[in-house]
């Protein structure tokens, strides 16, 4: 009976010990997770841009996720590869700026490889640091172009935007591509029509009647029309701009500062202020000068009169 009791006690002891061990290891794991979460999870993000069908580049961004919030991670070394990670496919090894961003162009020596295919895969690799392992991200894009044209029929102005993608050696219409289309204003786009955004039809085109009359342009009435596809899963970011003379010429009132007012330069002081100020100064300083002459006069009297 005693050995049985002894075994039972030992079993209870072992169970308690195991529970303590599990509890401590659980705490330890939890602490590690918390520490990791507090340190943040670095990552790399890639975005592809085409501007006016002539300039295409990548924006690579180093991020760090702290809790639920993703923040920029500045000054990180990132390698960007074309299609597969390897020294022969390296586009650029770069360091992100204070905002955690870097701009990467396809270099001339990779032009042949770039032109050889309609689809490409970009790979961004955030270099390993003493705290973290290497992180990478991929972005697959299909080469595309965006074109803009304008027509005026019976006094009605329209904008036609066409998006195409490359398939083999041919450009095919890109349907169902959402874009914003309008006039460049204050860093944003003022929609040309009544909709906030437009989607290409089966011909890859969007036609929008321009309904913004009397919009201020530059001194010749020019402003910039802009069509922008943002973060399309297939084509990335496409932007096309064109200048049209559809605005109202704005001639700035340069005479505003030519007036004699309280807010202009000293050369444009109002006459009433000049008159008042100089009158006061002349009266007061005239009196002061007169008083100084009186001192001189007192001095002269001392020479002419006996004590």
């Amino acid at each position: 009976m005693k050995p049985l009791l002894k075994m039972k006690n030992q079993h209870i002891r072992n169970s308690i010990l195991l529970a303590i061990c599990l509890f401590i290891s659980g705490l330890s794991l939890r602490a590690q997770d918390t520490a990791k979460a507090e340190a943040g999870e670095p990552s790399v993000a890639l975005r592809y841009f085409i501007k006016n069908n002539s300039e295409h580049y990548l924006i690579v961004r180093s991020n760090i996720k702290v809790g639920k919030k993703t923040q920029r991670l500045p000054n990180q070394v990132i390698k960007v590869f074309l299609d597969s990670a390897g020294p022969e496919n390296l586009l650029l090894k770069t360091t992100t700026d204070d905002q955690g961003e870097a701009k990467v162009y396809v270099p001339v020596e990779r032009a042949e490889k770039w032109n050889a295919s309609a689809k490409h895969n970009f790979i961004g690799v955030l270099e390993a640091s003493s705290l973290e392992d290497e992180r990478s991200a991929e972005l697959e894009i299909t080469r595309a172009k965006i074109e803009m044209d304008t027509i005026t029929e019976d006094g009605v102005r329209s904008i036609i935007v066409k998006v195409s993608y490359l398939e083999g050696a041919d450009w095919k219409p890109a349907a169902d591509v959402e874009m914003r289309l309008g006039v460049s204003r204050s860093g944003g786009i003022l929609s040309a029509g009544t909709e906030e955004s437009y989607t290409t039809d089966s011909t890859g085109s969007v036609t929008v009647e321009f309904k913004r009359d009397s919009l201020p342009g530059d001194d010749k009435g020019n402003f910039v029309l802009m069509a922008k596809v943002e973060d399309n899963d297939t084509y990335g970011n496409l932007l096309v701009e064109t200048v049209v003379p559809w605005g109202v010429p704005v001639v700035y009132n340069t005479t505003f500062f030519d007036q004699r007012t309280l807010w202009t330069t000293r050369f444009k002081t109002p006459f009433w202020l000049l008159f008042m100020a100089y009158t006061i100064v002349i009266i007061v300083w005239g009196t002061v000068i007169y008083l100084i002459t009186q001192i001189v006069k007192i001095g002269k009297l001392s020479k002419s009169e006996p004590n």
Partner: peptide, 22 residues
């Protein structure tokens, strides 16, 4: 140069009065 003559006092008094006004 101050001798304290009547004329000097007169000028001085007049000057002080002008100063007090201005």
């Amino acid at each position: 140069f101050w001798k304290g003559t009547a004329e000097q006092f007169k000028i001085s008094e007049k000057s002080i009065n002008i100063l007090c006004i201005i």
